[in-house]
Design a protein around this nucleic acid. Structure first.
Lengths: 258, 258
DNA sequence: CACTTGTTGTTATTATGATAACAACATTTA
DNA sequence: TAAATGTTGTTATCATAATAACAACAAGTG
C-alpha cells in the first residue's frame, strides 16, 4: 500500500480540478485532508496535507468564509468539512452566478457593436477545436438558402449533422459524398457513397480522423481536418477563390473512380 | 458622456467576473475589446483594450485555444470573437466538467474516511454564512426522531423550514415559538405565537435579522443569530451542557409573559 | 517546565502583467 | 531604385502582485 509523504499524489491532481472552482492549491489540499480526517485540528491537517502549519490557519479561515468548513469553539480549535456534494455545489453556483452576469454584460456589448458581415468577403478564417468548429459549422448550415454540398469523412459529427440537415427548408438541395450511410435517405438529399481516395488513405498522418468540405449556397465554404495528435482545425471563407477551389475539389471527388 | 482612456471602467468590472471562469485579466479585456469591434487586428485590439501590443498576441493565442476567437490567415491577421452565449457556455462547461470530476474524487475520499460521529460529543461548532447554516440546519431537522423544539425569529427561512418540518415522520413532536404564523397548523405541530421579548427588541444591534434556537430529540441544538452587517453565524452542538442551556432558554421563552 | 497552539512577519517562488528590442516585410518618398 | 518610414509579429527582459514557505514568538496547556 502506498502512503505518500506529504501531499498524496492523487491529492495534487484533485487540487488541480478544484483550482478552476476558485480554490488555491492550499485551500484544495487542506479541504481534501480534512475530508480524509473528517474533523481535525490545525496540526493534524498540516501533517495530512503537507501544507505548512502556519499557512493552515489563514487557509482554513478562507475556507470557512467560502462555507467549506465549520470551526469548533474549543481550544485547540477543531475543523469539520462540509460534505463534498454541497461544497462543490456551492462553489459551482458562485461561478455560475458570475457566468450569468458576464453573459448579460457581454451580450449588451455584443449587440451594441457595429457588426460587420460575418466573414467579411475575402478573408479566410482558422477555427480551432472540435466544439468551436461544430458550432460554426451548424450555424453556417442553418443559414443555407439554396444548396448544400458536403464531402464528409467524420464519423463523430454524423448524427448531429444529419439532424441539422433535415431541419432545413425543403427548397435546399443537399448533396453528400461520404463513405457510408445508414438509415433512410430523405427526399431532398442525394447521397453518394464512396471510399476515400487512395491519396488520403495513404497519408503519412496516422491518426486521421476527419476530412470534410462543406459548401453552402455556392458562396461560403468550410473545410475541416483533424487528427488525434494535433486536434481539429477548420478553415472558413466566403472568398470567391476559396469557394471555387473547393467546388472544384467537390467536382473532382464526385467524378473520381467513375 | 464618459469615455475612458485605456480599459473602460465597465470592462474592468466585467473582467472580474470573467476571471472566475478561468480567464486572466488580459484574456478578458481582449475578448471584450474584440466583441466591441467584432473583428479586428492585433493593433486595433491593443488600442481598444489597453493591453500592450506585444501581450496581445500570446493572449489571442490562448483565447484561440479556449475557442473564444477565430483567426484569419491574412496578413495582418484578423481576429473574430465567438458569440458571448457560446463562449460563456463553453467556459462554463469546462468548469462544470472539472467540478464533476472533483466531486467524484472527493466523494470517494469522503466515503473512505473513518468518519467520527458528526458533532463528536462535547464540541461546539461555529458555522458561517447563510447557505452553510441552511444546509446544516435542514440536515439536522431531517434526522429528527422524536421531538423538535424551535424558537424562530427569522422570516427568510420560514417557507423552507415549514416544508421540511412537514416531511418528518408523524411521531415527531414539533413545538414552535415564533412571532407570527400564517396558514393552517398541521396536526403534529404546536405553534405558540409571541412577540420577541424586550431584551432582544432593545438590543443595540440595529440590523437584527434572526435569532433562532433549534433543539432536536433533546440531544442536538443549533442556534442562529444574524445581522445585516456581520452576516449570519450559527452554533451547533450535541454537548449535554449546550443542549441543556438552550432547553432552559426554550422553557424560559415558553413561560415568558404568561 | 516542556510542549502545543495560534499569530506575526519575512522571505521564496510563481503567475501574470508591462516594456523594450528586433527582424521581416510593406509603403512611401526622393 | 534606394533610402526612409511604418507596421506586424516575435522574442527577451523586467516589474508587480499573488501565493507559498519559513522562522520566530507569545499565549495557553498539561
Amino acid at each position: 500500500m502506498y502512503l505518500m509523504a506529504e501531499p498524496a499524489a492523487q491529492a495534487v491532481a484533485l487540487a488541480e480540478s478544484l483550482k478552476s472552482l476558485g480554490l488555491t492549491k492550499y485551500e484544495a489540499l487542506v479541504y481534501i485532508a480534512l475530508l480524509q480526517a473528517s474533523e481535525a485540528t490545525a496540526t493534524e491537517i498540516h501533517e495530512l496535507s503537507g501544507v505548512p502549519r502556519a499557512s493552515v490557519y489563514p487557509v482554513l479561515e478562507r475556507l470557512s468564509q467560502k462555507q467549506l468548513v465549520s470551526v469548533s469553539n474549543t481550544s485547540p480549535r477543531r475543523f469539520n468539512p462540509e460534505r463534498p456534494d454541497d461544497a462543490i455545489e456551492s462553489l459551482l453556483r458562485s461561478v455560475e452566478h458570475d457566468a450569468a452576469r458576464a453573459k448579460k454584460n457581454l451580450n449588451r456589448i455584443y449587440s451594441q457593436s457595429a457588426r460587420r458581415e460575418r466573414g467579411d468577403q475575402e478573408l479566410i478564417w482558422s477555427i480551432h477545436g472540435g466544439d468551436h468548429i461544430r458550432l460554426r459549422l451548424l450555424e453556417m448550415l442553418q443559414a443555407a438558402d439554396e444548396s448544400v454540398r458536403i464531402i464528409f469523412y467524420w464519423d463523430h459529427l454524423k448524427g448531429e449533422l444529419v439532424e441539422r440537415l433535415l431541419s432545413l427548408k425543403k427548397e435546399v438541395k443537399i448533396e453528400i459524398i461520404t463513405d457510408g450511410w445508414s438509415g433512410p435517405v430523405p427526399g431532398q438529399v442525394k447521397v453518394l457513397v464512396k471510399a476515400p481516395p487512395m491519396e488520403i488513405q495513404k497519408e503519412p498522418v496516422t491518426n486521421w480522423q476527419a476530412g470534410c468540405v462543406f459548401i453552402v449556397d455556392k458562396k461560403k465554404a468550410m473545410v475541416v481536418m483533424g487528427s488525434k495528435d494535433e486536434g481539429f482545425t477548420a478553415l472558413y471563407s466566403e472568398s470567391m477563390g476559396f469557394v471555387r477551389f473547393f467546388t472544384m475539389y467537390w467536382n473532382f471527388f464526385l467524378n473520381w473512380g467513375q
